[in-house]
Design a protein around this nucleic acid. Structure first.
Lengths: 107, 107
DNA sequence: TTCCTATGTGGCAATATAGCCATATACTCT
DNA sequence: AGAGTATATGGCTATATTGCCACATAGGAA
Protein backbone atom coordinates (compact mmCIF):
# COMPACT_ATOMS: atom_id res chain seq x y z
CA UNK A 1 0.00 0.00 0.00
CA UNK A 2 2.87 2.32 0.89
CA UNK A 3 4.77 0.75 -1.96
CA UNK A 4 1.87 1.32 -4.33
CA UNK A 5 1.78 4.96 -3.36
CA UNK A 6 5.45 5.44 -4.12
CA UNK A 7 4.98 3.92 -7.54
CA UNK A 8 2.01 6.21 -8.07
CA UNK A 9 4.25 9.17 -7.19
CA UNK A 10 6.70 8.22 -9.90
CA UNK A 11 3.90 7.89 -12.42
CA UNK A 12 2.39 11.19 -11.34
CA UNK A 13 5.74 12.87 -11.93
CA UNK A 14 5.68 11.77 -15.55
CA UNK A 15 2.06 12.77 -16.01
CA UNK A 16 2.68 16.16 -14.46
CA UNK A 17 5.38 16.68 -17.05
CA UNK A 18 2.79 16.63 -19.83
CA UNK A 19 0.10 18.39 -17.80
CA UNK A 20 0.83 21.81 -19.24
CA UNK A 21 -0.47 23.33 -22.47
CA UNK A 22 2.98 24.36 -23.70
CA UNK A 23 4.52 20.99 -23.00
CA UNK A 24 1.54 19.23 -24.51
CA UNK A 25 1.97 21.11 -27.76
CA UNK A 26 5.68 20.32 -27.65
CA UNK A 27 4.97 16.62 -27.39
CA UNK A 28 2.52 16.82 -30.26
CA UNK A 29 5.05 18.73 -32.31
CA UNK A 30 7.49 15.86 -31.85
CA UNK A 31 5.11 13.22 -33.13
CA UNK A 32 6.74 13.07 -36.56
CA UNK A 33 10.32 13.13 -35.38
CA UNK A 34 12.87 15.31 -33.69
CA UNK A 35 12.83 19.09 -33.68
CA UNK A 36 15.46 21.57 -32.61
CA UNK A 37 14.78 24.03 -29.83
CA UNK A 38 14.78 26.85 -32.35
CA UNK A 39 11.82 25.26 -34.13
CA UNK A 40 9.93 24.66 -30.92
CA UNK A 41 10.57 28.23 -29.83
CA UNK A 42 8.70 29.49 -32.85
CA UNK A 43 5.53 27.70 -31.75
CA UNK A 44 5.15 29.96 -28.71
CA UNK A 45 5.22 33.58 -27.68
CA UNK A 46 7.08 32.84 -24.47
CA UNK A 47 10.64 33.78 -23.66
CA UNK A 48 13.18 31.23 -24.87
CA UNK A 49 14.22 30.56 -21.29
CA UNK A 50 10.68 29.50 -20.53
CA UNK A 51 10.71 27.07 -23.45
CA UNK A 52 14.04 25.74 -22.34
CA UNK A 53 12.72 25.04 -18.87
CA UNK A 54 9.66 23.29 -20.20
CA UNK A 55 11.90 21.08 -22.30
CA UNK A 56 14.00 20.21 -19.30
CA UNK A 57 10.85 19.22 -17.41
CA UNK A 58 9.99 16.83 -20.23
CA UNK A 59 13.56 15.55 -20.38
CA UNK A 60 13.82 14.96 -16.65
CA UNK A 61 10.57 13.05 -16.78
CA UNK A 62 11.96 10.80 -19.48
CA UNK A 63 9.33 11.87 -21.98
CA UNK A 64 11.84 13.28 -24.45
CA UNK A 65 15.56 12.94 -25.08
CA UNK A 66 17.97 15.47 -26.51
CA UNK A 67 20.82 15.30 -28.95
CA UNK A 68 23.35 18.00 -29.66
CA UNK A 69 24.41 18.85 -33.16
CA UNK A 70 26.65 21.86 -33.47
CA UNK A 71 24.92 24.83 -31.97
CA UNK A 72 21.55 23.19 -32.06
CA UNK A 73 19.88 20.74 -29.73
CA UNK A 74 17.32 18.34 -31.08
CA UNK A 75 14.58 16.87 -28.95
CA UNK A 76 12.88 13.56 -29.65
CA UNK A 77 9.79 11.94 -28.20
CA UNK A 78 10.82 8.90 -26.19
CA UNK A 79 7.34 7.73 -25.30
CA UNK A 80 5.13 7.63 -28.39
CA UNK A 81 2.28 6.01 -26.46
CA UNK A 82 1.70 9.40 -24.89
CA UNK A 83 0.24 10.43 -28.22
CA UNK A 84 -2.53 7.85 -27.80
CA UNK A 85 -3.22 9.29 -24.42
CA UNK A 86 -3.54 12.77 -25.81
CA UNK A 87 -6.10 11.40 -28.24
CA UNK A 88 -7.97 9.88 -25.33
CA UNK A 89 -7.91 13.19 -23.49
CA UNK A 90 -9.13 15.00 -26.55
CA UNK A 91 -12.24 12.84 -26.40
CA UNK A 92 -12.81 13.84 -22.80
CA UNK A 93 -12.52 17.49 -23.68
CA UNK A 94 -14.99 17.13 -26.52
CA UNK A 95 -17.46 15.18 -24.40
CA UNK A 96 -17.19 17.79 -21.69
CA UNK A 97 -17.73 20.58 -24.18
CA UNK A 98 -20.83 18.86 -25.52
CA UNK A 99 -22.17 18.30 -22.03
CA UNK A 100 -21.62 21.92 -21.05
CA UNK A 101 -23.44 23.04 -24.15
CA UNK A 102 -26.43 21.13 -22.79
CA UNK A 103 -26.53 18.68 -25.68
CA UNK A 104 -26.20 15.72 -23.38
CA UNK A 105 -26.82 17.21 -19.95
CA UNK A 106 -26.50 14.31 -17.58
CA UNK A 107 -28.65 11.77 -19.34
CA UNK B 1 -2.10 28.90 -33.17
CA UNK B 2 -3.89 30.84 -30.42
CA UNK B 3 -6.78 28.44 -30.88
CA UNK B 4 -4.45 25.45 -30.61
CA UNK B 5 -3.13 26.76 -27.34
CA UNK B 6 -6.60 27.11 -25.88
CA UNK B 7 -7.40 23.54 -26.81
CA UNK B 8 -4.13 22.47 -25.23
CA UNK B 9 -5.17 24.28 -22.04
CA UNK B 10 -8.36 22.24 -21.87
CA UNK B 11 -6.46 19.03 -22.40
CA UNK B 12 -3.88 20.03 -19.80
CA UNK B 13 -6.67 20.58 -17.29
CA UNK B 14 -7.78 16.99 -17.70
CA UNK B 15 -4.25 15.65 -17.53
CA UNK B 16 -3.52 17.68 -14.42
CA UNK B 17 -6.50 16.01 -12.83
CA UNK B 18 -4.77 12.64 -12.99
CA UNK B 19 -1.30 14.02 -12.32
CA UNK B 20 -1.35 13.24 -8.61
CA UNK B 21 -0.50 9.96 -6.88
CA UNK B 22 -3.70 9.86 -4.86
CA UNK B 23 -5.92 10.58 -7.84
CA UNK B 24 -3.99 8.11 -9.95
CA UNK B 25 -4.64 5.34 -7.45
CA UNK B 26 -8.29 6.39 -7.34
CA UNK B 27 -8.60 6.03 -11.10
CA UNK B 28 -6.95 2.63 -10.96
CA UNK B 29 -9.28 1.59 -8.16
CA UNK B 30 -12.23 2.38 -10.39
CA UNK B 31 -11.07 0.22 -13.25
CA UNK B 32 -13.44 -2.64 -12.36
CA UNK B 33 -16.49 -0.50 -11.68
CA UNK B 34 -17.84 2.05 -9.30
CA UNK B 35 -16.73 2.50 -5.70
CA UNK B 36 -18.22 4.53 -2.91
CA UNK B 37 -16.22 7.29 -1.24
CA UNK B 38 -16.03 5.19 1.92
CA UNK B 39 -14.17 2.47 0.03
CA UNK B 40 -11.82 4.95 -1.59
CA UNK B 41 -11.15 6.57 1.77
CA UNK B 42 -9.78 3.31 3.07
CA UNK B 43 -7.08 3.26 0.42
CA UNK B 44 -5.35 6.29 1.91
CA UNK B 45 -4.14 7.71 5.18
CA UNK B 46 -5.32 11.20 4.34
CA UNK B 47 -8.17 13.07 5.93
CA UNK B 48 -11.54 12.36 4.34
CA UNK B 49 -11.83 15.99 3.28
CA UNK B 50 -8.65 15.60 1.28
CA UNK B 51 -10.08 12.56 -0.48
CA UNK B 52 -13.27 14.42 -1.15
CA UNK B 53 -11.39 17.27 -2.76
CA UNK B 54 -9.37 14.94 -4.92
CA UNK B 55 -12.58 13.33 -6.10
CA UNK B 56 -14.06 16.67 -6.99
CA UNK B 57 -10.97 17.48 -9.03
CA UNK B 58 -11.50 14.28 -11.01
CA UNK B 59 -15.21 14.98 -11.34
CA UNK B 60 -14.73 18.56 -12.52
CA UNK B 61 -12.28 17.31 -15.09
CA UNK B 62 -14.85 14.85 -16.41
CA UNK B 63 -12.69 11.86 -15.56
CA UNK B 64 -15.23 10.35 -13.16
CA UNK B 65 -18.92 10.75 -12.49
CA UNK B 66 -20.79 10.34 -9.24
CA UNK B 67 -24.09 8.81 -8.24
CA UNK B 68 -25.86 9.15 -4.92
CA UNK B 69 -27.46 6.18 -3.22
CA UNK B 70 -28.76 6.89 0.26
CA UNK B 71 -25.93 8.15 2.38
CA UNK B 72 -23.29 6.94 0.00
CA UNK B 73 -21.88 8.43 -3.16
CA UNK B 74 -20.50 6.13 -5.81
CA UNK B 75 -17.84 7.23 -8.27
CA UNK B 76 -17.36 5.72 -11.69
CA UNK B 77 -14.60 6.06 -14.25
CA UNK B 78 -15.92 7.92 -17.27
CA UNK B 79 -12.78 7.67 -19.37
CA UNK B 80 -11.49 4.10 -19.43
CA UNK B 81 -8.84 4.97 -22.01
CA UNK B 82 -6.98 6.68 -19.21
CA UNK B 83 -6.13 3.21 -17.96
CA UNK B 84 -4.17 2.54 -21.16
CA UNK B 85 -2.29 5.72 -20.57
CA UNK B 86 -1.38 4.69 -17.08
CA UNK B 87 0.04 1.52 -18.57
CA UNK B 88 2.07 3.63 -20.97
CA UNK B 89 3.37 5.76 -18.13
CA UNK B 90 4.31 2.71 -16.15
CA UNK B 91 6.64 1.79 -18.99
CA UNK B 92 8.28 5.19 -18.81
CA UNK B 93 8.82 4.82 -15.11
CA UNK B 94 10.38 1.41 -15.52
CA UNK B 95 12.62 2.55 -18.35
CA UNK B 96 13.73 5.50 -16.28
CA UNK B 97 14.41 3.29 -13.29
CA UNK B 98 16.54 0.99 -15.44
CA UNK B 99 18.43 3.92 -16.91
CA UNK B 100 19.13 5.40 -13.51
CA UNK B 101 20.45 2.07 -12.32
CA UNK B 102 23.05 2.39 -15.04
CA UNK B 103 21.83 -0.69 -16.93
CA UNK B 104 21.33 1.28 -20.10
CA UNK B 105 23.18 4.55 -19.43
CA UNK B 106 22.69 6.55 -22.57
CA UNK B 107 23.81 3.96 -25.13
C1' DT C 1 -36.91 15.81 16.56
C1' DT C 2 -32.36 14.21 17.79
C1' DC C 3 -28.40 11.47 16.82
C1' DC C 4 -25.26 9.27 13.76
C1' DT C 5 -22.91 8.35 9.52
C1' DA C 6 -21.22 9.71 4.82
C1' DT C 7 -19.74 13.29 2.19
C1' DG C 8 -18.74 18.10 0.81
C1' DT C 9 -16.93 22.98 1.57
C1' DG C 10 -14.39 27.20 3.49
C1' DG C 11 -10.31 28.79 5.02
C1' DC C 12 -5.66 28.78 5.96
C1' DA C 13 -0.47 27.82 5.77
C1' DA C 14 3.05 25.28 3.40
C1' DT C 15 4.88 24.02 -0.79
C1' DA C 16 5.29 23.75 -5.83
C1' DT C 17 4.99 25.72 -10.41
C1' DA C 18 5.33 29.30 -14.10
C1' DG C 19 7.49 32.81 -16.52
C1' DC C 20 10.31 36.69 -16.94
C1' DC C 21 15.04 38.90 -16.92
C1' DA C 22 19.81 38.57 -16.53
C1' DT C 23 23.56 35.79 -16.98
C1' DA C 24 26.22 31.70 -18.25
C1' DT C 25 27.75 28.14 -21.35
C1' DA C 26 28.97 26.12 -25.68
C1' DC C 27 29.71 26.06 -30.36
C1' DT C 28 30.78 28.44 -34.95
C1' DC C 29 32.88 31.81 -37.75
C1' DT C 30 36.20 35.37 -38.82
C1' DA D 1 41.16 35.59 -29.63
C1' DG D 2 36.74 38.07 -30.27
C1' DA D 3 31.98 38.26 -31.99
C1' DG D 4 27.70 36.11 -32.79
C1' DT D 5 24.19 32.44 -32.32
C1' DA D 6 21.65 28.67 -29.81
C1' DT D 7 20.51 26.93 -25.58
C1' DA D 8 20.59 26.46 -20.48
C1' DT D 9 20.49 28.13 -15.67
C1' DG D 10 19.90 31.25 -11.44
C1' DG D 11 17.02 34.11 -9.17
C1' DC D 12 12.99 36.39 -8.36
C1' DT D 13 7.85 37.18 -7.89
C1' DA D 14 3.20 35.80 -8.86
C1' DT D 15 0.08 32.24 -8.86
C1' DA D 16 -1.65 27.49 -8.11
C1' DT D 17 -1.90 23.24 -5.50
C1' DT D 18 -2.03 20.51 -1.40
C1' DG D 19 -3.70 18.90 2.92
C1' DC D 20 -5.31 19.72 7.29
C1' DC D 21 -8.99 21.39 10.57
C1' DA D 22 -13.39 23.00 11.46
C1' DC D 23 -17.81 23.30 9.97
C1' DA D 24 -21.86 22.39 6.88
C1' DT D 25 -25.13 19.41 4.60
C1' DA D 26 -27.88 15.38 3.80
C1' DG D 27 -29.88 11.01 4.50
C1' DG D 28 -31.07 7.20 7.70
C1' DA D 29 -32.24 5.41 12.35
C1' DA D 30 -34.26 5.80 16.94
Amino acid sequence: MKREFELACLKAEVIKAVAHPTRLIMVEALKDGERCVCELNELFDADHSTISKHLSVLRNAGVVSDRKEGLKVFYKLEVPCILNFIGCITEVVETKARRQLGVVKGK
